[in-house]
Amino acid sequence: MRDLDFDIISPEAIQRGRATDAYFERTDAALNHADRNPRVVAEVTADQFPTGEFELLAGVKDVAALLADHAIDVDAIPPGRCFDGGPVMRIEGSYLDFARLETALLGFLSHASGIATAARRVREAAPDSPVLSFGARHVHPSIAAVVERSALLAGLDGFSHVAAGDQIDREASGTMPHALLLCFGRGQQEAAWQAFDAAAGDDVQRIALCDTFSDEVDESLRAADALGDALDGVRLDTTGSRRGDFRHIIREVRWELDAAGHEDVDIFLSGGLGVDDLRALRDVADGFGVGSTISNADPVDFALDIVEVDGEAIAKRGKLSGVKSVYRTADGGHHIGHRAGDPPVDGEPLLEPLIRDGDVVDDFDLSLSGATERAARDASLVGVGRTDRP
């Protein structure tokens, strides 16, 4: 048998600075050769000035793990807060102490923040409905936990990936795929649903997938008859090519379930759903599973730029020199100013001490629960992902 390995960069390689762009290795060699290692301030930003488009910050925990034990100071916006221009992170120290870590640092923040921002938009599209993250199958398995953690941070109610749950200490959710029905065969849907009911633990909801062989109404009624009071809900995962007027299908399923005395059976939807779908269907469905809209979100385009060298303000063309602070005002405003300048009236500083001389600051909250609470509060204040609701 051929000796094959997964194409996964190891945590050890990331910590050692091997997960870097080659030109940082060249820079390291050149500065060492010249015996030059200035003290710098570097800032991580997506936009220099506010644009009115808020995004949700995630990935900070991984950056803390990356930068810990390096002789640097780091300030950061806590995970789960919204940002719109200016720095989300500031690093102070000798440049060679963190130069090789830039590539991994930006990857941690960019990917997780993009996923979290997309998940928050999904959350706002159906604010009163249970929504689960079903998108881990669309990404490399090595980042499944990043997807699910970012989705929970944004306020989603659950996720599907088992190993991700092990990593973030949360329980994965899910019931049955079409494969279960197919393994029993056409006309044997009742046997499949009953086998699931018999094998699943008491803590698992009985949600029957009802669109495998026949139409959604037929299979929903048959599932309700087969499982009786044990059935919690039906899931419609109808592919777009066969869906037709999905809203009409859902309403028809609801009508016929109610007519047959199954008013307590909920209807859950999945299958390529996006933000517009959730807005259009949230009044006729009881919950959603959303996949690629979340997992395949574009990363936030963060950059790390030196803004001060040996105490002198400096920047490349197109960037703002000097050390900056960012503030949130009570009306949801996002403000950027010089660190030495006066803050806006009622301005709350967003950057907090994360690392001091290589030690992660105990008071900096990196917990998932804390980030989720901040996301709900901050997103509500600044309006990220929200549109006018009927």
Rank of each mutant, 00 (worst) to 15 (best):
A303L: 13
D245R: 13
E263P: 03
S292M: 10
G271P: 01
A280T: 02
T212I: 08
M176T: 15
H178S: 14
R170I: 09
T175E: 00
Q189W: 07
A208L: 01
Q189Y: 10
M176P: 06
R235G: 05
D266V: 11
R206A: 09
A260N: 09
S220M: 13
H262F: 07
A200F: 08
A303M: 13
G261E: 00
V265L: 12
V307T: 02
G240D: 11
Q205K: 14
R242N: 10
G311K: 01
D298L: 11
V300L: 10
F246M: 10
S220F: 07
D218C: 14
A313T: 11
L182F: 00
F268D: 09
G185E: 05
T239M: 08
V265S: 05
I306Q: 00
A313L: 11
G311Y: 04
V204Q: 06
F268S: 13
A226T: 00
A285Y: 00
T239Y: 10
Q189C: 12
E171A: 11
V290M: 03
D225R: 15
D197Y: 11
R254S: 02
A223R: 03
D215I: 05
A303D: 14
Q188P: 06
L304V: 15
V253Y: 03
R243L: 11
G201H: 01
D232T: 00
H178V: 15
I267S: 06
R282A: 01
I306D: 01
A172Y: 10
S214L: 13
L180S: 07
D225Q: 15
A285P: 03
E171C: 12
N296Y: 02
G228I: 15
V234A: 03
R282W: 05
G233H: 04
D310E: 02
G287M: 04
A195D: 01
I314V: 15
A285G: 07
E312M: 07
V275G: 00
H262R: 03
L269R: 07
L231N: 03
D211P: 05
A199W: 14
D232G: 02
T175M: 12
W255H: 15
E219N: 04
C210G: 04
G240Y: 00
V284L: 08
G271A: 04
W255E: 15
F184K: 00
Q194M: 11
V265H: 03
E190G: 13
R282N: 04
P177Y: 03
V290Q: 09
D215P: 08
G272N: 07
L181I: 10
G187L: 09
S292K: 13
F213I: 02
L269P: 02
T212S: 04
R222W: 07
T293G: 08
E190I: 14
F288V: 07
D277E: 07
H248L: 14
G289L: 02
R222K: 08
E190N: 15
A195S: 09
A285E: 03
I207D: 00
H178Y: 12
H248F: 14
V234P: 00
F196T: 09
G287N: 10
V217G: 14
A230T: 13
E312H: 06
D232A: 09
S292A: 10
Q194R: 12
A297H: 08
A224E: 00
T212Y: 04
W193H: 00
A191Y: 13
R247Q: 08
G233V: 02
M176A: 09
L281E: 02
S270F: 11
V253K: 03
A172E: 01
L304T: 11
R242Y: 09
E219I: 12
A260L: 08
V284M: 06
L281H: 02
E252G: 03
